[in-house]
Design a protein around this nucleic acid. Structure first.
Lengths: 222, 222
DNA sequence: CGGTCATATGACCGACCGGTCACATTGGCA
DNA sequence: TGCCAATGTGACCGGTCGGTCATATGACCG
């Protein structure tokens, strides 16, 4: 947790630090990211950073578990339930993609949760974040199951499959579509703008179709 | 590429080096992994390592693109096509899981391909490996499409969805099932043995079901 | 004014890294 | 046996890191 000193900082100075931290942690892995660099680029002496945060992990943890989720909630806002279950799932996915377009670095920060690292505490953080995402998605799917829109012999397993499809799977599809790699997308506004609302809708539609019907060509036997 | 000196090494010495390298690179990220550690644990002077490989990346690249795939091919062997498309896909997936049980560190090494890193050349490696996997899977799915077993409006996108389901998705499910994290699974034989043939069959069955039929409960409309 | 206390600062520390290189060792061949 | 090329070796280098700490600064208060 940051110290009170950090929260009392003039906004401009605090923002400088936070933004540089987001940049650093979003295009390097935790191990590669350097506090010295963050401080240097934010023009804040390293000693000062250590007055605001206990250590590198403290800063990272706060970013990952407090600041990024806060900003995401702010962006996503309250999603008004609309249409049937599948339409709502589609919207849910589209909003996630929109967040990726508008705040790619924050999105990348959270997506890093998949990255394996030797630092045990970081792995713990990642697991917690993943699990939180799973719980949220599971809630959504449970609702769908109650409404009779979907059936799954094991909702736990189904949730995890769906999570990877709309997470890494969709990201992979997007990168393929943009013909770029993650780092380029993080750096290029124009690249991201190509992922406009229309395109996002089409892609989330594809994802939902896959989740809903799979690829089998024969009629379902039930 | 390793030097000829490396290939002329006494087997015992070369194996020691390779095995320690696999251990190091499989439980730390590329950035975290240390050549000094590898050399120390293999009881081979660092200077010697630099006679075998150009640098850290050279060793990593060789492991990732030559040694690991070679061992995987050896393990998987030629899969005799058997049963219909979906049965074959199930076998394909089960074999992958078996490899994960028998050679978890090699599996982890290849799976690391998802990890973002600041080292551009490593990202290139990752991308190439991912793409190779995609191409292979795409071939499998194309065959299925020809046989009329599956339909997809866009096979490229479908391939990527399927890849994430049977890759990260299934891994996630397995970890959940074992109630452990990746690092523990790498280290514990008994944990992995719980993933016996029967269990693997059941899981690949679940994955195929999901890929084939999705979660929608109503009949397909086509 | 002087004193005090939170905060700012950057030189400094020890650790470790990837990589080099001068020198030692070895093994085959004349 | 003596020579030489290939190979082995570990001390060493420059650099960066995370983190510390003695000192400077400046706002507030009596």
């Amino acid at each position: 947790m940051p110290t009170s000193t950090f929260f009392n900082l003039p906004d401009e100075r605090r923002d400088r630090l936070v933004n540089e931290a987001i940049v650093e942690f979003s295009d390097r892995s935790y191990a590669e990211a350097s506090l010295s660099q963050i401080a240097r680029r934010a023009s804040i002496p390293k000693g000062s950073v250590y007055q605001y945060f206990e250590d590198k992990l403290d800063l990272y943890r706060w970013l990952l578990t407090d600041e990024a989720p806060r900003r995401k909630r702010e962006f996503i806002g309250a999603a008004p339930p609309e249409g049937d279950f599948w339409a709502r799932l589609e919207t849910f996915i589209e909003r996630g993609m929109a967040f990726l377009v508008e705040h790619p670095r924050l999105a990348r920060l959270s997506a890093a949760a998949a990255t394996p690292t030797a630092v045990a505490e970081v792995r713990g953080l990642y697991k917690a974040i993943c699990e939180a995402g799973i719980v949220e998605l599971r809630g959504v799917l449970e609702e769908g199951a109650r409404a009779g829109a979907l059936q799954a012999s094991d909702l736990d397993i189904a949730t995890r499959f769906v999570a990877t499809v709309i997470g890494p799977g969709l990201t992979d599809v997007i990168l393929q579509e943009l013909g770029a790699e993650l780092h380029e997308v993080l750096a290029s506004d124009s690249l991201r703008k190509r992922l406009n609302l229309k395109r996002r809708r089409a892609l989330s539609r594809q994802a939902v179709l896959f989740i809903r019907n799979g690829l089998g060509s024969e009629r379902k036997s039930r």
